[in-house]
Amino acid sequence: MFKTWSSSIPSFPYHRDQLLRWALWSCASIAGLILVFIILFLILESVPALRHLGVNRFMFDPSWHPGENTFNLMPMILGTLFTTIGAIALAGPIGFCSALFCHCYAPPRLASLYGRFIELLAGIPSVVFGFWGLVVLVPLINQWHPPGPSMLAGILILAMMILPTTSLLAQSSLAQVPTEYLRGAAALGLGRWATLRRVVIPAAKSGLWTAALLATGRALGETMAVLMVCGNVVQIPSSIFDPIRTLTANMALEMAYAVDDHRSALFVSGVVLLLMVLILVTAANWSNRVPRHV
């Protein structure tokens, strides 16, 4: 579980200590309250749709056409899942390998230059990625396999966006491996590859998981860029060249234009997204509990 200092630091009943304690407590509760309020708000807003339509309609309606009173969310849930999985499958290994290269093989100058590049990439706003995707990437895919706006475009753009997250976090978790481990491995006469595989990676494992988790979270929640390149057609794709719509893009496209049950149904898709993130976090925590090798 979570390891804290609360039991190991002495707290004195002095005025200043108590004041600090309450100040910090209120800061912590603000963060917690914001989350509680957001969840409450989402649930309150989605109750009318759930009451009028019922949960089943969101899974078994023939299509998503709120104007014609059909509300199937499944194609968009799958769209979100597919793009996220595709993006993490691409960006995870690339980010991890680039972090390994940068940390363990690259000459210091190149490593620092590369680090600056990755930081810059992390700072590019998502709408710029989306715009670039719309005017460069989508026409390229269109030449290869029409129509162009597709799940593939979404996966590529998302992978580019989360690559810096995976790379930077993987680097910092590699950097936290104690140098004693490396010296120990060297003393045992292990080569670089064996050191990496048997010592460094197992020791950095939980940090690497966190990197993948944060990147997945970002990919799940990304809106603007995927809206611009994915085509936004509500359908279950039969190939990666088919256009799809994600849950986030659905909310962004229709929220400003929706009234009554349609609006409420969009809040239901917000709740679904929240549930997906919850499942992800739980799964990540659970897999992190597997005993470490070092």
């Binding site: 014609e68 129509p147 936004n232």
Partner: peptide, 28 residues
């Protein structure tokens, strides 16, 4: 037409999004 009868390849938001999509795609 009914919206459910339309077989779309791209769904767009505002006018500018549509114009950019067509400008980048000779088949659109």
């Amino acid at each position: 037409l009914a919206n459910s009868a339309i077989k779309a390849d791209v769904v767009i938001g505002d006018n500018e999004h549509g114009i950019k999509t067509v400008a980048g795609n000779p088949q659109a």
